[in-house]
Design a protein around this nucleic acid. Structure first.
Lengths: 158, 158
DNA sequence: TAAAGATTGTTACAATATAACATAAATCTT
DNA sequence: AAGATTTATGTTATATTGTAACAATCTTTA
């Protein structure tokens, strides 16, 4: 199976450098196929499902792409911290603060689909304290708040 | 299609009364089939997937049950507040504090599968404040902390 | 260069969830 | 009580999300 040349969405140099840096830190390899998935995600300002992403990539590359391929690339991107998975929506989102490692919380607008990624040390600390109080050793916290973003709240009733 | 009589897992009177009360409050109807799903969930002390639940119910009732049936009953139980869905695991869990309406947070042990349901007004307030600061109108928060419960943490390395 | 390990491709399939429409039961209206 | 309306259930099919197993290819390193 000769590997196809990968045609990728345009990717600003800063994102590429970021990805390279993260790979060095994590001892991972950056390949064209992996970068292409990241680039494709960056063309959207909304979370995408894995299969939406497959569709986008197939259009871009004019060929079939197996689900597993994309899932593997997503796993990679999550592993190096460039992508988040929204557990409550089963979708994927490029990290909004990719310049440093962090835990995130997400504000998901149920009207327009926009997601705000926020980074509150306070939430981290509080959840960590609560875990402690229950004799629980916390590893990772999923915090996803559903509601209406400012723009949509201004329009909707209520 | 004549409806089958439903053979149900044993269900303590207090759970039945609770379900009845919740239905009155919400203007919903309690049916044998719905109660049977709740009863089956209460026989487990762990979250179950929808399909595990289908299997349990099929064994109990000695007949095929369509996925949609169980999903509908789960939706009902969630609607009246007797069951939670764990978004990060895609599993379902009877509410641990079903006597009153509340938001919950969950501590999920990745080793033994046990889940602690906690109810922190502090978390609610903090998330609500953060949402406000971002001009976001919060509706519901998903808070699921993965890690090790006390018992498992005592055994595992680290 | 050869071996080892990581990445990708390919096929098939598992697990989770819903759509569309028919039937049955409960509730409401008159 | 009869018919109309709403709610709940049954049935079939299908959509969506995610993995297993294994072969082929590329990269790194000894």
């Amino acid at each position: 199976m000769a590997r196809q040349p990968v045609s990728s969405a345009p990717l600003a140099a800063k994102w590429r450098k970021l990805a390279e840096q993260r790979c060095i830190e994590k001892g991972e390899r950056l390949t064209p196929a992996r970068l292409a998935v990241y680039a494709e995600m960056l063309t959207r300002d909304r979370p995408v499902s894995a299969y939406e992403l497959i569709g986008l990539l197939e259009q871009r590359q004019k060929r079939k792409i197996a689900p597993l391929t994309v899932y593997r690339h997503l796993d990679f991107l999550i592993r190096i911290g460039l992508v988040h998975r929204l557990q409550s929506a089963q979708t994927y989102l490029p990290c909004g603060h990719p310049d440093h490692a962090h835990e995130s919380q997400f504000l998901l607008c149920s009207s327009c689909g926009h997601v705000d990624e926020v980074e509150s040390r306070g939430v981290e600390r509080l959840l960590s304290r609560i875990a402690d109080e229950h004799g629980f050793r916390a590893d990772k916290a999923v915090v996803e708040v559903k509601g209406l973003c400012g723009a949509c709240a201004a329009v909707e009733p209520g």
